[in-house]
Design a protein around this nucleic acid. Structure first.
Lengths: 202, 202
DNA sequence: TCGCTAACATAACGAACGGTATATAATGCC
DNA sequence: GGCATTATATACCGTTCGTTATGTTAGCGA
C-alpha cells in the first residue's frame, strides 16, 4: 500500500483522495485537459474548488496525477504485452488490449494519451510535452523487446525495428482516434485482425 | 471560378476573403477549433472581429469554411490516390501523400481532421460530429476502390475489405498523431515503408 | 476547555472567452 | 450632391475560465 494521507492534525478530510482522483481521470479522459473545466471536475469529484486545490495543487497537477493513475491502471496491458513469448504475441496483446481499454462499456472511449497529445491550445502546451515525453519510454521498451525478438528469430533479419515500432504505435494511435470517433469493438476487431494477419514473423 | 463576392453596393471590403480564410485555416490547423481564439484568428487574418462576423457568420461557420478549404486543397491526395492502378498503389499514394501533407515545412503538423475529431470540450461537439461525418464518405470511397481491386485480383480473395480499410485509416490517423507530436519525415517514412512491405497483394 | 491546525463552504477575483452595439468612413445609384 | 448600403474601428456585453481570500467547522493535543 502506498503511503497515503495521515495528517493526524486538524479537521479530517471528508472525501477519499483516490476516489476523487478516479473521478477526475474519467472527466479528463472524456473531455481532454482543456475541455475539462473546474466545474466539471469538482462536480464529478464531489468536492469544492478549495478542497481540490488543497489536495492536488492546481488543475495541471491534478491532471498529472490522473495521468499517473491512467498509465498505472489502464495502460498496464502495454507492459504485460512485452512478456509475450514472440513478437507477434506482443503485437497481439497490445492490439487486443487496446480494444479492451478503448472500448470499455463503462469508461470513456479512446486513449487519454492520444487525446492529450493531439489537443489543443496554448495552455495545454506544457501538458502536451509531458504526455509526449512519457510515451518515449514506453516506445523504447517496445523497441528493446522487438530487438530481442529479432535475435530470437521471431522477426525477419532484414526488418527495421524502429520502423516496425512506429508502425505498431501508429495502428494503436489510429485505433484510439477511431474509438474516440465512435468506432465499435467489432470495427476495431476487424482492424486488429487485418493487421495481425500481415504481421511479419511469429 | 467560384461565384465570389460582388456586392457592388456599399463600401468595398478591404481584405481578400480567400486569403483571410487561408490564414484562418492555418490557425485552426495548428491550435484546433477550441484552441483557436477569436483574437488568434483576427490577428492572423488581419481583420477585426466585426469584419470576421460580417464575412463568415461566426466562429463555427468560419471553421466549416476552413475545413472545406482544407479538404479541397490539402486532402486532394486522398482522391488522387484512388486513381492508382492497384490496391497497393492506392495505399502507397495515400501513405506518402499523408507524409507530405503532415510534414510540410511551411505548414502546421498533423491533420486538421484528426485534431478536430479527437478534441475536445462541449462547445466542439457539433464540430466533432461534423468532421466525423465527413470522413465517412471518404472512407466509403476507399472501400469501393478496394472492392474493385479485389475483383481485379489485386487483393487476395479472402481479404476483409472493411477491415483493410479501417486498418489503412488507422495507420494514416496514427501517423497524423505522431506528426503532431513531433515525428520527423524520416520517422514517418520508416512507418510507411514498414506498412507497405507487408501490404497484401499488389 | 482551550487553542492549534486543517478542511470545509461561500463568494469573489482578474483575465479571457465568443459575440455585438455604436459610430464613422467609403462606395454605387439617383 | 444627397442617400442608401456596407465595411471599418472602438469599445463593450455577459459568461466562463482557473484561482484564491475569507470566514466557519471539525478534530487533535494540552
Amino acid at each position: 500500500m502506498l503511503a497515503s494521507n495521515t495528517p493526524t492534525k486538524g479537521r479530517p478530510r471528508e472525501f477519499d483522495v483516490d476516489v476523487a482522483l478516479t473521478a477526475a481521470l474519467r472527466v479528463f479522459w472524456s473531455k481532454g485537459y482543456e475541455g475539462a473545466s473546474l466545474t466539471d471536475l469538482t462536480e464529478a469529484m464531489g468536492i469544492t474548488r478549495p478542497s481540490l486545490y488543497a489536495a492536488f495543487g492546481n488543475k495541471e497537477a491534478l491532471f498529472r496525477r490522473a495521468l499517473d493513475l491512467y498509465e498505472r491502471e489502464k495502460l498496464e496491458y502495454t507492459r504485460r504485452a512485452l512478456d509475450a513469448p514472440t513478437a507477434k504475441g506482443v503485437a497481439e496483446r497490445m492490439l487486443y488490449g487496446a480494444i479492451d481499454a478503448q472500448c470499455s462499456e463503462c469508461e470513456p472511449k479512446g486513449c487519454l494519451g492520444v487525446i492529450s497529445a493531439v489537443a489543443c491550445g496554448a495552455e495545454a502546451d506544457a501538458i502536451r510535452e509531458h504526455v509526449i515525453a512519457r510515451r518515449v519510454s514506453s516506445r523504447n521498451a517496445l523497441v528493446e523487446r522487438l530487438e530481442q525478438a529479432k535475435q530470437d528469430g521471431d522477426l525477419p533479419a532484414e526488418i527495421d525495428i524502429d520502423g516496425l515500432t512506429g508502425y505498431l504505435f501508429a495502428i494503436l494511435q489510429g485505433m484510439a482516434v477511431q474509438a474516440g470517433a465512435g468506432a465499435t469493438r467489432e470495427d476495431l476487431e476487424k482492424v486488429v485482425k487485418t493487421g495481425l494477419s500481415m504481421w511479419p514473423g511469429r
